[in-house]
Simulated assay, not measured.
Amino acid sequence: MAFDRMDSATYLASLLAKSFSRALQERGQKLGFAPGQFPVLLELWSEEGLTQRQLLDRVDIEQATMANTLARMERDGLIHRKKHPTDKRAQQIFLTDKARAMEAEAKAAAIAADQSHFSDFRHFERELMLEYMRKAIVNGARS
Protein backbone atom coordinates (compact mmCIF):
# COMPACT_ATOMS: atom_id res chain seq x y z
CA MET A 1 0.00 0.00 0.00
CA ALA A 2 1.50 3.32 -1.09
CA PHE A 3 1.72 6.22 1.33
CA ASP A 4 -0.10 9.33 0.13
CA ARG A 5 0.70 12.25 2.39
CA MET A 6 -2.54 13.98 1.39
CA ASP A 7 -4.38 11.07 3.06
CA SER A 8 -2.27 11.39 6.22
CA ALA A 9 -3.97 13.23 9.09
CA THR A 10 -0.56 13.75 10.69
CA TYR A 11 0.82 15.43 7.58
CA LEU A 12 -2.31 17.51 7.01
CA ALA A 13 -2.47 18.57 10.68
CA SER A 14 1.12 19.76 10.43
CA LEU A 15 0.34 21.84 7.35
CA LEU A 16 -2.81 23.21 8.96
CA ALA A 17 -0.97 24.13 12.18
CA LYS A 18 1.66 26.00 10.17
CA SER A 19 -1.03 27.82 8.22
CA PHE A 20 -2.93 28.85 11.37
CA SER A 21 0.36 29.94 12.96
CA ARG A 22 1.23 32.12 9.95
CA ALA A 23 -2.23 33.68 9.98
CA LEU A 24 -1.94 34.47 13.69
CA GLN A 25 1.64 35.71 13.26
CA GLU A 26 0.59 38.25 10.63
CA ARG A 27 -2.11 39.59 12.92
CA GLY A 28 -0.25 39.25 16.22
CA GLN A 29 2.93 40.89 15.02
CA LYS A 30 1.05 44.17 14.63
CA LEU A 31 -0.05 43.90 18.26
CA GLY A 32 3.33 42.84 19.65
CA PHE A 33 3.09 39.10 20.26
CA ALA A 34 4.25 35.95 18.48
CA PRO A 35 2.05 32.87 17.84
CA GLY A 36 4.04 30.78 20.34
CA GLN A 37 3.28 33.34 23.02
CA PHE A 38 -0.47 33.26 22.46
CA PRO A 39 -1.20 30.08 24.50
CA VAL A 40 0.78 31.53 27.43
CA LEU A 41 -1.08 34.83 27.13
CA LEU A 42 -4.42 32.99 27.11
CA GLU A 43 -3.52 31.20 30.34
CA LEU A 44 -2.32 34.39 32.02
CA TRP A 45 -5.36 36.38 30.88
CA SER A 46 -7.40 33.67 32.56
CA GLU A 47 -5.26 33.48 35.72
CA GLU A 48 -2.22 35.56 36.56
CA GLY A 49 0.46 34.58 39.03
CA LEU A 50 1.03 31.11 37.62
CA THR A 51 4.47 29.54 37.92
CA GLN A 52 6.48 28.29 34.97
CA ARG A 53 5.64 24.70 36.03
CA GLN A 54 1.90 25.48 36.04
CA LEU A 55 2.18 27.05 32.60
CA LEU A 56 4.09 24.01 31.34
CA ASP A 57 1.31 21.73 32.53
CA ARG A 58 -1.40 23.86 30.96
CA VAL A 59 0.25 24.68 27.63
CA ASP A 60 1.98 21.30 27.21
CA ILE A 61 5.27 22.35 25.66
CA GLU A 62 8.88 21.47 26.48
CA GLN A 63 10.62 23.10 29.44
CA ALA A 64 13.26 24.75 27.25
CA THR A 65 10.63 26.11 24.87
CA MET A 66 8.67 27.58 27.77
CA ALA A 67 11.81 29.15 29.26
CA ASN A 68 12.67 30.75 25.90
CA THR A 69 9.09 31.91 25.36
CA LEU A 70 8.91 33.53 28.79
CA ALA A 71 12.32 35.19 28.34
CA ARG A 72 11.17 36.66 25.04
CA MET A 73 7.86 37.77 26.54
CA GLU A 74 9.74 39.47 29.38
CA ARG A 75 12.11 41.14 26.89
CA ASP A 76 9.10 42.32 24.85
CA GLY A 77 7.45 43.83 27.91
CA LEU A 78 4.52 41.38 28.08
CA ILE A 79 5.26 39.73 31.45
CA HIS A 80 7.18 40.28 34.65
CA ARG A 81 8.15 37.79 37.32
CA LYS A 82 7.90 37.93 41.09
CA LYS A 83 9.31 35.59 43.69
CA HIS A 84 6.77 33.02 44.82
CA PRO A 85 5.64 33.81 48.39
CA THR A 86 6.02 30.22 49.66
CA ASP A 87 8.32 28.42 47.18
CA LYS A 88 11.75 30.02 47.05
CA ARG A 89 12.65 28.14 43.85
CA ALA A 90 9.61 29.34 41.91
CA GLN A 91 8.58 32.63 40.39
CA GLN A 92 5.07 33.79 39.63
CA ILE A 93 4.40 35.26 36.22
CA PHE A 94 2.24 38.32 35.78
CA LEU A 95 1.12 40.28 32.75
CA THR A 96 2.24 43.84 32.18
CA ASP A 97 -0.24 46.60 31.44
CA LYS A 98 0.83 46.31 27.78
CA ALA A 99 -0.21 42.62 27.67
CA ARG A 100 -3.47 43.26 29.54
CA ALA A 101 -4.34 46.06 27.12
CA MET A 102 -3.91 43.83 24.06
CA GLU A 103 -6.20 41.01 25.26
CA ALA A 104 -9.32 41.93 23.30
CA GLU A 105 -7.41 42.71 20.10
CA ALA A 106 -5.28 39.55 20.39
CA LYS A 107 -8.35 37.35 20.83
CA ALA A 108 -9.97 39.13 17.89
CA ALA A 109 -6.82 38.43 15.83
CA ALA A 110 -7.08 34.72 16.70
CA ILE A 111 -10.75 34.69 15.72
CA ALA A 112 -9.88 36.40 12.43
CA ALA A 113 -7.16 33.79 11.79
CA ASP A 114 -9.73 31.05 12.44
CA GLN A 115 -12.30 32.69 10.20
CA SER A 116 -9.83 33.05 7.35
CA HIS A 117 -9.38 29.27 7.38
CA PHE A 118 -13.07 28.45 7.75
CA SER A 119 -14.44 31.06 5.35
CA ASP A 120 -15.86 28.50 2.89
CA PHE A 121 -17.21 26.20 5.61
CA ARG A 122 -20.83 26.03 6.55
CA HIS A 123 -21.43 26.48 10.29
CA PHE A 124 -22.05 22.77 10.94
CA GLU A 125 -18.89 21.82 8.98
CA ARG A 126 -16.78 24.11 11.14
CA GLU A 127 -18.36 22.72 14.32
CA LEU A 128 -17.78 19.14 13.14
CA MET A 129 -14.16 19.84 12.30
CA LEU A 130 -13.57 21.38 15.73
CA GLU A 131 -15.27 18.41 17.39
CA TYR A 132 -13.10 15.99 15.42
CA MET A 133 -9.96 17.97 16.24
CA ARG A 134 -10.77 17.92 19.96
CA LYS A 135 -11.47 14.18 19.80
CA ALA A 136 -8.17 13.51 18.00
CA ILE A 137 -6.30 15.59 20.60
CA VAL A 138 -7.87 13.57 23.43
CA ASN A 139 -7.05 10.31 21.66
CA GLY A 140 -3.48 11.45 21.10
CA ALA A 141 -3.08 12.32 24.77
CA ARG A 142 -4.10 8.77 25.68
CA SER A 143 -1.42 7.15 23.51
Rank of each mutant, 00 (worst) to 15 (best):
Q115M: 13
V59P: 05
R81V: 07
A90F: 08
M73T: 03
L55Q: 11
T51L: 03
A101D: 13
E43G: 01
H117W: 01
L78H: 12
R53T: 13
N68V: 09
Q52M: 09
E48Q: 15
F94P: 07
N68K: 09
M102T: 10
L95H: 13
A90S: 15
A101P: 11
E47Q: 12
L56T: 01
L41K: 09
L95Y: 06
H117I: 00
R126D: 03
L70I: 12
H123I: 11
H84C: 03
A101E: 13
L56I: 02
R89A: 14
I79S: 13
L50R: 14
Q54S: 10
F94E: 05
L128W: 11
Q63P: 10
A67E: 04
M73E: 05
H84Y: 04
M73H: 05
E47A: 12
E74V: 02
R81M: 14
R89Q: 12
A99W: 08
M66L: 15
F121S: 03
H80L: 09
L50N: 05
V59E: 01
A101N: 14
D57I: 00
T65C: 09
L41N: 09
L55H: 05
L41S: 12
R100L: 10
R75N: 03
L78P: 13
K83D: 11
A109K: 00
E48D: 13
T65P: 00
E43K: 14
D76R: 10
H80S: 02
L42Q: 11
L128C: 12
L50I: 04
H84K: 02
D60T: 08
R81I: 03
L78N: 12
R58G: 04
R126Y: 05
A113D: 05
E47T: 07
Q63Y: 10
A99D: 13
D87N: 13
D87M: 00
P85C: 01
S116D: 13
A99V: 10
A106M: 10
D60G: 10
M73D: 09
S46V: 01
A113Q: 02
R81A: 15
D114G: 06
I93H: 08
R126P: 00
A104I: 03
R89S: 15
E48L: 07
A104P: 03
Q92S: 07
Q52N: 05
L95P: 11
L42W: 01
Q91N: 11
D57P: 03
A101V: 01
H123G: 07
S119W: 04
R126L: 06
A99G: 07
A109M: 06
D120M: 06
F118A: 15
R72D: 14
L128S: 09
A67N: 08
K83E: 04
Q91E: 09
L41H: 08
D87R: 14
R100H: 06
M102E: 10
A108Q: 12
F94T: 05
K98H: 15
E62C: 09
R126G: 10
A71P: 04
H80R: 13
E125K: 08
I61S: 02
D60P: 02
A67D: 06
I79V: 15
L50G: 07
E127V: 14
A110V: 01
D97A: 15
Q91G: 00
D87Y: 03
A67T: 14
A109C: 07
E48C: 10
K107R: 14
A113M: 06
A67S: 14
